[in-house]
Design a protein around this nucleic acid. Structure first.
Length: 424
RNA sequence: GGAGAGGUGGCCGAGUGGUUUAAGGCGUACGCUUGGAAAGCGUAUUUAUGAGAAAUUGUAACAAGGGUUCGAAUCCCUUUCUCUCCGCCA
């Protein structure tokens, strides 16, 4: 969530940013925010004056009682009674104004970085890099869901029976390949300085709110109503929330974490060929990297994360490209996002396998994640995160791109983790 | 899940209705002292937000939320977390 002070002081910049996102009625919304905030301030000042007055009187009454001047005290009591009445009213008004303001602010997305291209949809995302040869597959090449069946390594029907669509069962070498990928990713990340953490897979409301899933996007998460908890849609939520309500020192930067978790997403409304096989699941595994950075360093950190993910894909020898998401496609909370897509040769399409973003202070403001700067003042930190990587689509990419007529080769870098070189 | 006891500042710990943002201690910072260090002495040491050029100052916060009262860390209610005992359990 943006800070009102920021909106007030950078109105033009905010409006331009919202225009890039094709945000409708931006200037109307922003005006509404500002007037609501002014209103809130006026009420608050008035309330505080009344409270100051009544605090003063209360002290006097206390002194009068002590010195036995009951009558005078009783007189003053009547006065405070009136003050109390008006402070009650003002309090209600203040709560309403604050609530109105919050509701407005929740609707306003993060302001995109200047690098973010204009655009109307995902077709306007800017490809900034691509690498890896797209293999020439043999005539009988199959999409991964058929390979999975042929070699009996992923069973989608079994998942349907146990839970429902989107909850596959990985078997034998499929399960082992998945575990190998997780270990490989975690090792790469910890080697690069990210501290490994294991975090809860369910979070409370405050955490969902902190990273921006709540209040608007609760439909994407599974809600455990009995205990009012949510299954995490990504490790970003619990990992970033480790730093909710935290006041850091400058020397604490940079903070780097990596964590492996299953992720749960309802994906309501998705259907068709795009959700076939491993393309889109309700439960999937992901290794995440999260950084908390000084505002001056966050864009260097973002580049560092992009390069890190690049290195992993190079080692896996998968054909991939990097997109800089345009204003229409970038997430609500992000200021700049790079998507990594791996080419799924047998499907002839790109699959998103990582999304690396800088949220600047957008999450930190909600999280109350601050640090003491050189002047001794507290300032919001920057939060960043990215996938390194999302497992199912990497798996799909490997199965499809590494298939031969005799079986599926295992990328060399993974062989020491799997203990086998082919699936056949 | 049942019964009981608790939650106070960076930490320990006092405080059961009235100049208490909160004694005392520890820690930390600065100064004095010292050849240097320790000890000692002195000073400082929460956050958010409003006003002010600044010194300063208003308001709020003693787990969270609500209530009683002129006045709440202190009394009442709800929620939550921790500890002890019992139950269940990988």
């Amino acid at each position: 969530m943006l800070q009102v002070a920021f909106i007030r002081e950078n109105k033009d910049h905010v409006l331009k940013g919202l225009a890039k996102r094709n945000f409708t009625d931006a200037s109307k919304k922003i005006e509404e925010v500002l007037t609501t905030d002014e209103n809130r301030k006026t009420i608050q000042t008035e309330l505080e004056n009344i409270l100051a007055e009544s605090n003063k009187l209360s002290k006097e009454i206390g002194l009068l009682f002590k010195s036995g001047e009951q009558q005078k005290a009783t007189l003053l009591k009547e006065k405070t009674g009136q003050l109390k009445e008006s402070s009650k009213q003002l309090n209600e008004q203040l709560a309403t104004a604050q609530n109105d303001l919050d509701n407005l602010l929740y609707q306003i997305p993060n302001i995109p970085n200047t690098l973010v291209p204009e655009g109307k949809g995902e077709e306007d995302n800017e490809e900034i890099f691509s690498e890896g040869d797209i293999p020439e597959l043999h005539d009988k090449a199959l999409p991964h869901w058929e390979l999975a069946k042929k070699y009996d390594i992923i069973d989608f029907e079994l998942g349907n029976k146990i839970t429902g669509a989107g909850f596959p069962v990985y078997k034998g070498k499929g399960a082992k390949l998945q575990r190998a990928l997780i270990n490989y990713f975690l090792d790469k990340n910890t080697d690069a300085g990210y501290q490994e953490v294991q975090v809860p897979l369910m979070v409370n409301e405050a955490s969902g709110f902190g990273t921006g899933q709540l209040p608007d996007k609760e439909g994407q998460m599974y809600h455990v109503t009995g205990d009012n908890l949510y299954l995490i849609p990504t490790a970003e939520v619990p990992v970033t929330n480790m730093y909710r309500d935290v006041l850091l020192k400058e020397s604490d930067f940079p903070i780097l974490h990596t964590g492996y978790t299953p992720c749960f997403r309802r994906e309501a409304g998705s259907y068709g060929a795009h959700v076939r096989g491993l393309n889109r699941l309700h439960q999937f595994d992901k290794v995440e990297i999260v950084r908390i950075e000084h505002p001056n360093k966050s864009y260097d950190a973002l580049d560092g994360m992009v390069n890190h993910v690049k290195e992993i894909l190079q080692e896996l020898k998968l054909p991939y490209r990097i997109l800089r998401l345009c204003g229409a496609d970038i997430g609500f909370t992000s200021a700049l996002t790079y998507d990594f897509e791996v080419f799924s040769t047998a499907q002839d399409r790109w699959l998103e396998i990582s999304s690396v973003s800088n949220f600047e202070t957008f999450q930190a403001n909600r999280l109350k994640l601050r640090f003491k700067n050189e002047d001794g003042k507290s300032e919001l930190a920057h939060t960043l995160n990215g996938s390194s990587l999302a497992l199912p689509r990497v798996l799909a990419g490997i199965l499809e791109n590494y298939q031969t007529e005799n079986g599926i080769e295992i990328p060399e870098v993974l062989q020491k983790y799997t203990g086998f070189n082919t699936i056949d």
